[in-house]
């Protein structure tokens, strides 16, 4: 490795709101690991389940649930962060309550339209802010940003905030998702710079 004189990347911002190794953007980059699934709201459904119970909401049922709004910074493992993003949706804690799933399952698997998956401890979904978001900046969430609905877990790198969410399954044994099984960190806390396995 040798330093390229004059190349600074996009970094060098000392803002204390930026986790280590991040730079700030004002636009909203669109990242995707595959084709964008187009899901109409009249065929959309969200399922929450464990090994005992299963609950599915249609779009109308889902959007009738209590709405929670958050304004938060988001951080992508590809080094960009965006400040003060405004989201609205249904808190994951509400969904788990409504579904009546067991409250002692340690892990969650998140699965999506298009086949994407991610995994995270249930405590990251219920003890912190975590939404299934359907609104961004006051407007319906655009499909390239994960609409009709995406997970939002802003205290972890954004690959955990799965776009086009289709379901959450609570399990006893952790199972790495799409990126977690390809060398990315299993937890992904940006403040600890948990980018890759072993960080």
């Amino acid at each position: 490795m040798s330093v390229t004189a004059g190349f600074g990347g996009r970094r060098g911002d000392d803002d204390e709101r930026l986790p280590p190794g991040q730079y700030r953007v004002d636009d909203f980059p669109v990242l995707t690991a595959g084709p964008t699934p187009l899901v109409e709201t009249d065929s959309w459904a969200l399922t929450v389940r464990d090994d005992q119970v299963e609950r599915t909401w249609s779009w109308d049922e889902f959007t009738a649930l209590e709405v929670e709004s958050v304004t938060t910074d988001i951080h992508c493992v590809t080094h960009w962060s965006k400040f003060d993003t405004q989201w609205a949706g249904v808190s994951v804690a509400t969904l788990l309550d409504e579904a009546g799933v067991r409250d002692d399952a340690p892990y969650a698997q998140v699965y999506c339209y298009g086949g994407y998956t991610t995994n995270l401890p249930v405590e990251d979904l219920v003890d912190r802010v975590a939404l299934v978001a359907h609104t961004f900046d006051g407007d319906p969430l655009e499909v390239e940003h994960g609409g009709p609905a995406r997970l939002l877990v802003p205290h972890l790198y954004l690959w955990k905030s799965a776009k086009w969410i289709r379901g959450i399954r609570l399990v006893d044994h952790d199972q790495p998702g799409f990126w977690e099984s390809a060398g990315y960190h299993n937890h992904g806390d940006p403040w600890l710079e948990q980018r890759y396995a072993g960080d």
Partner: peptide
């Protein structure tokens, strides 16, 4: 079909989109 605007590099089937 290869997707580069994501954390890694994803190579997909051009016929069905499978990873």
């Amino acid at each position: 079909h290869v997707y580069l605007r994501c954390p890694g590099m994803v190579m997909r089937c051009p016929a069905c989109g499978a990873t």
